[in-house]
């Protein structure tokens, strides 16, 4: 049995963003993220999507830094390419999460305004009132097609009591 190779640091390659330097060991890949670039919620969001694919552990090597350690699940023999691919996919998802957060933050005011207007404006209530008034008006109108009700039938010579039968 050969001794495990010491951890090696890789230059960014493939899908891995340039500011990430990944570290590989026998079964695990790790990299350090700057919380200024990758907010914690973005890291959580990416990790949340990877918990079914990888064993994940987070540490804080320094202030405002988060180290992500990934170990693939269900892989008997971990190859270097597998670890690099896993790190690259995580990094891509991380960028996706950062973008989602930024879009969410930049449109928050607009979304809140739209929701508030939808919930609290009088337009909705007035349109409902208009519909109800329209329905009431229709009910009050004479409707020739309305099914006749026997007890409302006017008395005739054939039916002097107006029973309708």
């Amino acid at each position: 049995m050969t001794a495990p190779e010491p951890p090696s640091e890789l230059e960014p390659a493939g899908d891995i963003p340039e500011e990430l330097t990944i570290t590989l060991d026998e079964r695990r890949v790790s990299f350090v993220l700057d919380e200024e670039l990758y907010p914690r919620d973005a890291i959580y969001g990416a990790a949340y999507l990877f918990v079914d694919r990888a064993w994940i552990f987070l540490t804080r090597p320094a202030d405002r830094q988060v180290e992500v350690r990934l170990k693939p699940k269900d892989v008997d023999r971990v190859e270097r390419g597998t670890l690099e691919a896993l790190a690259g996919e995580f990094a891509n998802e991380l960028l996706n999460q950062v973008l989602r957060q930024r879009v969410g933050a930049s449109t928050r005011a607009l979304r809140e305004y739209t929701l508030a207007r939808a919930l609290f404006t009088d337009d909705t209530q007035s349109s409902i009132d208009a519909l109800l008034a329209e329905l009431d008006a229709e009910e009050l109108e004479e409707d020739e097609l309305e099914i006749s009700v026997p007890w409302r039938t006017e008395p005739t010579s054939a039916d002097p009591e107006g029973t309708g039968g």
Partner: peptide, 16 residues
């Protein structure tokens, strides 16, 4: 241990 750590992380995200 790995599963325990994943569970703790998952719960942290959900609680947050």
């Amino acid at each position: 241990i790995d599963a325990f750590c994943n569970h703790a992380l998952y719960e942290t995200v959900v609680l947050g």
